[in-house]
Design a protein around this nucleic acid. Structure first.
Lengths: 247, 247
DNA sequence: TCGAATTTGTGCGTATGTATC
DNA sequence: GGATACATACGCACAAATTCG
């Protein structure tokens, strides 16, 4: 079973891009030209180029042409062991390290735990929790989305029930939990990736279907998980850097 | 500027899938049906479904229908602080933790450093290095690809010059470097994601264009970087778990 | 400044092959 | 074998953006 023609064309172009024959910024043959070279209909050439666009190798400009994408300047989002030492939130620390001012917007509400969240918090589906949505910004550009869950049986009636209000706002989960006697000992971050949903793409200002890294983060004390969050980062602009001490 | 019709249809279906209205395994309306519902040509319905297939939400079976993909059982690949304590390689430790026997194949050769590799090793492009390709297997299934670079000015003429031969084969970089007096103090892992290249898809046995997580790992001593590797993991089957001690 | 040519994005209708039921 | 459904391909049309004389 031979590969379909449009895939063969895409493969040729992709290889040329990876090998550097078509350097970043250079212009691809127009679809008319491709159709002529490969002796196919122009629709087939369209499909081939569309595939490369979807894969992120190529950027197409209406009326101008299709161009090999520049490797974006990727900012590093450091998620280090060390950044947890100084009391602030991990995001603030990472942005400070990069010399960019980090800010965020948030909104909090009560919500029952969904089944996957309950599993991560060692609770039962439907148990009451505080859910907080975050949009993290650097230079007024969206960097990261997060949806954080804290079980209410820990925080209800305490000064830290609302993560972003009161005397401990903006301190990060570790600091706030310490106030109510929960000593967080370690975090677990499960990293994966998928295409962005339409709503996420809008909030992160990336194209729909653009790739995002997802982190399922859970903070634990010796006893139990105390907070979990789903974090979403556009892979086009940021790479996630873990620093791991050895020995 | 309204979204094109095929994107609107794809968005509707995608949302239904994520929200659980269309659970894994359920059948999508046929494209004939979709075309009728949205009052468009069947070609537009084809584009919409094709988009979801490319994004990995849907699997299309010729002659049968298009189905919501099952979320595969994702194995956890733990890349923890702790796994570096016991001398073995991180991969072997992670597989042992998961109760699966980990094996690998490798081949090593001299090669001059490429510019990006040289930058990561604080060397000059073209400097001599040993390059080792790895294919990591669990239950005879490919799990992870890696391409590792070690500067020859450190290892040439020592018993550890060849990573997978001699008395220290299979000990992992940390152990081997210790033999020649290089005390590795920390690792840095930069995580990103992209579609698999055709060759990678073949070696990992995933569909072409399937997503892979990439890790650019560099081991450092107090003085200098001593090894760096490009690691590739299919995101469909594995999620990357970092355990981070806090305080 | 204007207009023609080029290029991409989207959409329609049709046709053929093949896999599944 | 027939009906259904998906995969690919052809050819055409028009809108919008861009380029350039």
């Amino acid at each position: 079973m031979p590969s379909p023609t449009y895939q063969r064309i895409a493969d040729d172009l992709r290889r040329a891009i990876v090998d550097g024959e078509l350097p970043p910024g250079s212009k691809l043959p127009s679809r008319h030209e491709l159709a002529r070279q490969y002796e196919v209909s122009d629709r087939v050439a369209v499909e081939a180029v569309r595939l490369l666009v979807a894969e992120g190798f190529v950027e197409a400009k209406s009326g101008s042409g299709s161009y090999v994408r520049h490797r974006p300047e990727m900012q590093r989002l450091t998620r280090s062991w060390y950044t947890h030492r100084n009391g602030g939130s991990p995001f603030r620390a990472a942005m400070a390290a990069a010399g960019r001012p980090g800010t965020w917007e948030s909104s909090t509400e009560r919500a029952p735990m969904t089944p996957p969240i309950a599993a991560r918090l060692a609770a039962r589906p439907g148990d009451p929790a505080m859910r907080t949505w975050y949009t993290f910004l650097a230079d007024n550009e969206p960097v990261m989305l997060s949806q954080s869950w804290e079980p209410l049986y820990l925080t209800e009636g305490t000064p830290v029930m609302l993560p972003e209000e009161g005397p401990h706002a903006g301190c990060g989960v570790v600091g706030r939990m310490a106030v109510i006697g929960q000593q967080i000992t370690h975090a677990e971050e499960a990293v994966s990736a998928r295409p962005a949903l339409a709503a996420e793409a809008g909030r992160l200002k990336i194209r729909p279907g653009g790739l995002v890294l997802t982190i399922a983060r859970t903070y634990h004390t010796d006893q139990r998980p105390v907070e979990t969050a789903d974090i979403t980062i556009p892979v086009e602009r940021y790479s996630l850097v873990y620093e791991i001490p050895v020995q």
